Simulated scan of single mutants.
Amino acid sequence: MWRNIASNALTLFIVLLVVIGGVIGWGKREYSAQGPLTEAICLKVESGSNFSRVSDKLEAEGAITSPAIFRMGADYSGKSTQLKAGSFLVEEGASMEEIIDVVTRGGASTCGTEVVYRVGVNASEYQVRELDPATQDFRTVAEFAPDEEIPAAYTRVRAEADTRFRVAIAEGATSWQIVDALRKAEFLTGDVEEIPAEGTLAPDSYEMRPGDEISGVITRMEAAQSARIASAWDDRASDLPYDTPEEALIMASIVEKETGVAEERPQVASVFINRLNQGMRLQTDPTVIYGITNGQGVLGRGLRQSELRAETPYNTYVIDGMPPTPIANPGEAAIRAALNPASTDYLFFVADGTGGHAFAETLEEHNRNVARWREIEAERAENQ
């Protein structure tokens, strides 16, 4: 009898092991299998939350099939204590394993609300934007200038811990414009004693936190620009008409201010380099304008003939060679165009009416392009 009991107990134990093994195997498959989400969602994890609350929220959103398996997966993967606060994008069909990786990885929130402070050449503005997780497109909910009344939408998101803040610097903004705009940024603190040297700040998008020091932001921009010019200088073409990275930066700033069409930058750079190589004056309006404004704002009108004739260090209609400093902060593409220009014989260019330019090798060809541009200007004036 005892032998039968022992045999039955052993059989039952084996069956239990098989069942437990099957359950564990099923749980592992469920944990790593494609999830039930049919549309991406933005999961907000509050500060001080835990995996129990997160799993309940995910089940309510239809993102997981089993809160218990989700929590056990966090335990067995050693991530149960690594939950991060923030707003996280959970993709369509994300597995429980993938979701746990998203909410424990750290870093900036990947969805939700962001405040973008855009520093432009003509003006600066705040944009409050919310990500639609289904389309992954941002929807602008508020826009306002630094000197305008702060809207309620900004006040609301300003107080939320998971709101992302970015400062986006436009290519071609001057150092004075950038510092002036940062001083007006409500979420930044402190100041800088001196305006950084022209051309030394990298136009880009920078993640911020409310309370960050302006001086720290400037340091990041300077480091990024220094790295860009160093890398481009190492990869430069041969036989360029300048001997130092600083001179290349001056050329890059001129290229930046002369065209907003990305694919034109190497051709524009080739025009000025060809002129330097042939001993011709650069004759570029943006340098003259910089000599008038010193980079402090925009001129807001056309150049006068007296200004084109005036002898200033930045009037390239009068001086030979390049001006003494950059005239703006060029982006990486303009820097690389200045150091790897297109191989052309162009010596002239003028607007072509499409937003780009018509290039020419001879003065005769250039004069025809100028005449065509004057016709376009006249037609537009008549239609206004």
Rank of each mutant, 00 (worst) to 15 (best):
E213V: 07
A223G: 06
M208C: 13
D243N: 10
I229D: 02
E264R: 14
A227N: 14
P210L: 04
S253G: 13
T219M: 09
G216M: 11
A197G: 01
A262K: 08
V268Q: 11
D191E: 14
A237M: 13
S226W: 12
A224I: 13
L240G: 00
P203Y: 09
M251Y: 00
E258R: 04
S238E: 12
D234N: 11
S253P: 02
I214Y: 08
V261P: 14
I218Y: 03
I229P: 00
R220T: 15
S226I: 13
Y206Q: 07
T189E: 02
D235S: 08
G199T: 01
S205Q: 15
Y206E: 08
L240Y: 12
K257H: 00
S205L: 15
D191K: 09
I218E: 12
M221D: 01
R265M: 13
I214S: 06
R236P: 06
P196H: 03
E207T: 10
I218K: 12
S270G: 02
A232S: 07
S215M: 13
R209I: 13
G211Y: 00
A252P: 00
G260V: 14
K257S: 02
E264D: 09
S238L: 11
W233R: 14
A248S: 03
I218C: 09
T200N: 11
I229L: 13
E264W: 14
S253F: 07
A202M: 15
E207M: 14
G260K: 12
M251R: 01
R236T: 04
D235R: 06
I195Q: 05
G260T: 12
E213P: 06
S231R: 07
